[in-house]
Measured scan of single mutants.
Amino acid sequence: MDPFVVLVLCLSCLLLLSIWRQSSGRGKLPPGPTPLPVIGNILQIDIKDVSKSLTNLSKIYGPVFTLYFGLERMVVLHGYEVVKEALIDLGEEFSGRGHFPLAERANRGFGIVFSNGKRWKEIRRFSLMTLRNFGMGKRSIEDRVQEEARCLVEELRKTKASPCDPTFILGCAPCNVICSIIFQKRFDYKDQQFLNLMEKLNENIRIVSTPWIQICNNFPTIIDYFPGTHNKLLKNLAFMESDILEKVKEHQESMDINNPRDFIDCFLIKMEKEKQNQQSEFTIENLVITAADLLGAGTETTSTTLRYALLLLLKHPEVTAKVQEEIERVIGRNRSPCMQDRGHMPYTDAVVHEVQRYIDLIPTSLPHAVTCDVKFRNYLIPKGTTILTSLTSVLHDNKEFPNPEMFDPRHFLDEGGNFKKSNYFMPFSAGKRICVGEGLARMELFLFLTFILQNFNLKSLIDPKDLDTTPVVNGFASVPPFYQLCFIPV
């Protein structure tokens, strides 16, 4: 058959498939802009700032609406009420993970971030239990974070109060905490193996944040037939998995079943207990991918939040002064901060919360999916439909947070200066898919920041009023603009 005829037939089939998918069930789905064949609503979305586009569309179609990214149908949730109703009140029905062709290629359905069903539930339950087990290797997770915080302070001392970009050092600290939990080992910041790991993690975040990856996920045929950065992403992930597998083999040879040292040991012990169960989800494949998931999810998000926190503290020296006064009063100079201190430091706690609220790190979270046909607000959402959640619409709700575009710790303080919780605080998402490392991340943010401010004054290279804190939105995360500062020993 003539190649031209084959091409026309293929394009015609794709067009018909697109029209059929977009028209099927439209009477039951939430409203939304009319999609174009094949490309859907992509032309109506700013790929570099999806969150802003969703906010604009919500003003037209309401808090629940339908979009098509290519052939992929998505239902968008915008605003606290619908997000709570879906992710919390109907948590089980909305607990699936959205379709990610690239991740599915890399992870093969294993791990904790992109798995679904029984596998996801069992691996998540085990990971939560293990991360909360403060007795691994007779050292609590808090001990590990405190140790890394001391190392971080010593690295900052080496800058000798000269101007520096904190990106690298602030990236090393949370990565080392995860390494300590998974591998029972922290690395020197100049260790070549550690630097290679950091390089792969950072490069992957840069790649994932590009519009090209959005295109690959919406048109998965590209993955096999086109060159691009997605190939580098898959190569980096394969490198990390190979490295983790080597460490798993080392653990198998040296493990003491009665004295687990780290996450890998705990997983291997669980595998041993379930070795007679042919349906067990505790396999080497799941261990390797879960460890890679924890490394990827637990490094860049925390380091970016820390980097943004220091920029905001530079911009608002009056806030920094209040935090340091609270540190001096509650902790002093002669001991290290600990998590028990947080309950006695409402202002510092409010500042950490406000940093996370203000920066809105992951504006749309990772997409969910419905696990069955769901009736939601008089609409029928078919099983498997991807759910896109606007966390921006919750964290920047102007009824809950007056002047949401302003950095103001009073958003989390009552009139008496006591810490005030808010149900709208969802930087880790909400419901059954809430970030498994939430507790660890909150511990790291509090301890790293208090250790830094206990030991250093922060000095800006320019007038604080002239510092730009506008986030650089890159399609996946909101990151701070480049800046330098000086760490002046107190």
Rank of each mutant, 00 (worst) to 15 (best):
Y308S: 08
R97N: 02
P363V: 02
D262T: 02
E81D: 14
F4L: 13
E253Y: 11
F110D: 06
C164D: 03
T371Y: 05
I223P: 05
T55R: 10
T130I: 09
G417P: 04
L268D: 00
A441I: 01
G431P: 01
T130F: 14
S429P: 03
N258I: 07
I387S: 00
A291T: 13
G228P: 04
T283H: 09
N176M: 04
S18T: 14
T450K: 05
F428I: 04
C13G: 14
N196L: 10
G25Q: 11
P471I: 15
Y68Q: 12
S365H: 02
S24Q: 15
R119C: 07
K275I: 04
T320A: 11
F134H: 15
F114H: 13
F126Q: 02
V323E: 01
N133R: 10
I178D: 00
I327T: 04
N204A: 07
R377Y: 07
R261N: 05
K118S: 13
I359D: 00
I88K: 05
L447K: 05
W20I: 13
I88W: 07
C338D: 09
Y424M: 08
F451Y: 15
I362G: 02
E122D: 11
L234S: 06
T55K: 13
V374D: 00
I178L: 12
T320N: 08
G79C: 00
I244A: 03
L461M: 11
E300S: 13
H230T: 06
C13M: 15
P317D: 08
H230G: 06
E253L: 15
F126D: 01
V208E: 07
I39P: 03
P211R: 11
L11A: 14
Q279R: 10
S18R: 15
L413S: 03
P363I: 02
D224F: 06
D256E: 10
G298F: 04
F65C: 04
D224M: 06
E438G: 06
G62C: 01
N56P: 06
L485H: 01
T210H: 09
L152W: 02
F168P: 10
G298V: 03
E154K: 12
A291S: 11
L287F: 02
V330E: 13
L413P: 00
K52N: 15
I182R: 02
T386L: 09
C175K: 03
D46L: 03
T305C: 03
G79M: 00
Q252Y: 10
S140Q: 07
V64H: 02
A149E: 02
G117F: 04
S140W: 10
N116P: 02
D224Q: 14
S365C: 08
D341C: 05
I359P: 00
L413K: 00
R157D: 10
T385P: 00
A149T: 03
R442S: 13
E93H: 11
L294P: 01
P37S: 04
C216L: 15
W120S: 07
F187T: 05
R73N: 06
R21T: 07
T305V: 08
H353L: 02
P37Q: 01
L453S: 04
D373A: 06
K235S: 13
L156T: 02
I257C: 13
F134I: 14
Y483L: 05
G109F: 04
H251K: 05
N474L: 10
V8E: 04
R261W: 03
I45H: 05
E142T: 06
E272L: 12
D262R: 01
F419Y: 06
D89C: 08
F282Q: 02
E250S: 10
Q356T: 06
Q340R: 13
P37K: 02
L170H: 00
Q279D: 11
K375D: 07
L67H: 01
N423S: 12
L131S: 03
I88P: 03
I462W: 09
L295H: 01
T210W: 14
P174K: 04
P37E: 01
T159F: 10
V113P: 03
V113N: 09
K138E: 14
Q484R: 15
K190R: 13
T66Q: 06
L245A: 14
S422T: 07
G111W: 01
D165Q: 04
H368S: 02
E92K: 07
T470A: 15
D408S: 07
L388D: 00
I42T: 09
E318W: 12
F219A: 06
K421A: 14
R119N: 09
A309R: 00
H353I: 01
G25P: 15
E241L: 08
H316G: 02
I331D: 01
M271Y: 13
T290P: 00
T159D: 01
V5A: 13
Q340W: 08
V323M: 14
G416A: 14
R124T: 02
P480Q: 07
M240G: 04
L29T: 07
L195T: 15
H99P: 13
G439F: 09
V177Y: 02
N133Y: 09
T159W: 12
L295M: 11
L15A: 11
K375H: 13
P367G: 05
I205A: 15
F446T: 03
D2H: 13
V370G: 01
D188Y: 07
D349G: 05
S254H: 08
D256F: 04
S180E: 11
I327M: 06
E85Q: 09
T130H: 14
T34G: 06
E415G: 12
M426C: 04
D466A: 11
G96N: 09
F412N: 00
T66S: 08
Q184K: 13
D463I: 09
N259F: 08
P163E: 11
M406V: 12
I47G: 10
S23D: 11
L71E: 14
K247D: 07
T159S: 11
N455A: 08
L311T: 04
E281W: 11
A477F: 11
L268M: 06
T55F: 10
D243V: 15
A321E: 13
F183H: 06
N286H: 08
T159G: 08
L449G: 02
S95Y: 02
S23V: 11
E104Q: 09
I362Q: 10
T385C: 08
I362A: 07
P367E: 01
F451V: 15
E72S: 09
K275W: 07
L131T: 05
Q252K: 12
P346M: 05
F126A: 03
E318S: 11
Y424Q: 09
N259L: 07
D256C: 07
R410G: 09
K138C: 15
G62A: 00
R342P: 07
S422P: 02
I215A: 08
I222T: 08
G137R: 12
F4N: 02
L152V: 08
L458M: 09
R150T: 06
R144P: 06
I488G: 05
E250V: 08
T55A: 14
P3R: 02
P427V: 10
T386E: 01
M240K: 01
L314E: 03
P367T: 06
G298I: 03
P427S: 07
N202E: 15
L294F: 13
D165A: 04
S460K: 04
R261D: 03
V330M: 08
L461D: 15
Y225L: 13
F134V: 12
H368E: 01
R105Y: 07
F219L: 11
I362M: 13
L156D: 00
F267Q: 01
T167S: 14
Y358T: 08
D397H: 04
I213F: 12
Q214Y: 15
D191L: 02
Q278E: 14
F194V: 07
I169S: 06
F282A: 04
N231D: 09
F407A: 00
F126C: 03
Q356E: 03
E241H: 12
W20C: 15
A477V: 15
L440H: 02
K399V: 15
V319E: 06
G228F: 07
G137I: 11
E203L: 05
T34A: 11
I222Y: 07
D408R: 04
S254V: 08
S58Y: 06
I434T: 11
E253A: 11
S478C: 12
I215F: 14
Q276F: 10
T469D: 15
F239C: 12
E250H: 08
L195N: 10
L413A: 02
I269N: 10
Q146R: 13
D165T: 04
